[in-house]
Design a protein around this nucleic acid. Structure first.
Lengths: 206, 206
DNA sequence: GAGCTTTCGCTACGTGTCGTAGCGTAATGC
DNA sequence: GCATTACGCTACGACACGTAGCGAAAGCTC
């Protein structure tokens, strides 16, 4: 996840079990304490490792939480429900379910906030969390084109701009609904959101 | 801002200049240090007040930053540009301009993250920041109805749901674009976004 | 003006976390 | 066996936190 694997030839190997235990302990601490009261010493104790081991693997709180939260998004996948609308509703509901978990709420926004002043951290978030979501948008669009629900993109540049826009709208709306408005992105909300989004896409492409 | 004014009868009054100096110093510290490295002792020194004065007025870092960032949104207003599309573009550009400032970026998301575990903090953010933005959506909708650009709402409950949805979509998209994608919400982007949003609204109301 | 009340600046303090250094020990490859 | 790396443990200086206590300043009321 955070270290290079290029055949570290000799010496005692790093315990993979420790990695898993640390990340799980981090999520548990996020649930119980939230971001601001989470301390690395506490995480180390929960995981049953020494504090120094934690510092040998992660540079600090930010990087650790990014990795811990990133694992939550592993389950994200694009379901094939037969229509673009149903596909969107499905994936948005998955995304909302992950964001509803307290360890995602407290952790994700905090590292995003910190990433505004830390280029490396932003890149880490992009690589391990954001890109995984973005790929779903690309797949969804390709599938809708194959079904004939969307016209093929006018050009590569225009297509990339549209994907970026859709991505910011979808992810941003769900995040804002969940964290700022603090209300659940349930099925009724997702249905309404999908209707607006699809209507907008249809109108914008004419 | 944070204290009741009910005719604090007697005694030395609190210095209003100190309030302004503290909030300005907080924003400056946010720019130079970011959220995590901002300390209340440093803010007090910058503002030229004692650390104890700061603690007498704010309960902690969270509340202070909320108030400091809230002032940035004072300038938000709905311009009358003649059409719904132009009005939306105008207000979204204003919102984007505020969010582009480093003190808003670092501070806003951090307090939102912390608000997921602090009901009082969330209420404070809602009252001093979010509601001010939401009112613009209400005004914009009313003005568009008066112009005949949007049909009158089907019912009061449906109308409230729609306003909430629009608000999450607009604010969420701009925030995500600015903070997560880390790219500017410039005029070209806002134009594309507005086209999608308006198309979605038209399609959703049929 | 005298007197009361509240705020302010300052200093000092105990508490907790940070991040690192140093050491001896455990686990792997050659 | 031997070199190498990871691990657990302890201890440490540095720093920010949040509070207490004091005397002085700035208002209001009479």
């Amino acid at each position: 996840m955070q270290s290079r694997t290029p055949a570290s030839r000799t010496g005692r190997p790093r315990s993979a079990a420790a990695d898993a235990a640390i990340l799980a302990a981090t999520r548990q601490a996020l649930v119980e304490l939230g971001w601001s009261r989470l301390t690395l010493g506490d995480v180390a104790t929960r995981a049953g490792v020494a504090k120094t081991t934690l510092y040998r693997r992660w540079a600090g709180k930010h990087e650790l939480v990014v990795d811990a939260v990133a694992e939550l998004f592993d389950e994200l996948q694009l379901p094939d429900r037969g229509s673009l609308a149903a596909d969107i509703e499905g994936v948005v509901l998955q995304f909302a379910a992950i964001l509803a978990r307290p360890e995602a709420k407290s952790g994700l926004m905090a590292v995003v906030a910190e990433s505004t002043r830390d280029e490396a951290l932003r890149e880490r978030i992009r690589a391990s969390i954001v890109d995984r979501q973005k790929r779903l948008v690309l797949e969804g669009r390709a599938r809708a084109e194959a079904r004939g629900e969307l016209p093929p993109p006018a050009g590569p540049e225009e297509a990339a701009r549209t994907v970026d826009l859709i991505f910011d709208v979808v992810a941003g709306a769900v995040v804002h609904r969940t964290l700022v408005s603090a209300e659940p992105a349930d099925e009724a909300w997702v249905r309404g959101f999908t209707r607006v989004l699809l209507g907008g896409l249809g109108a914008a492409s004419t």
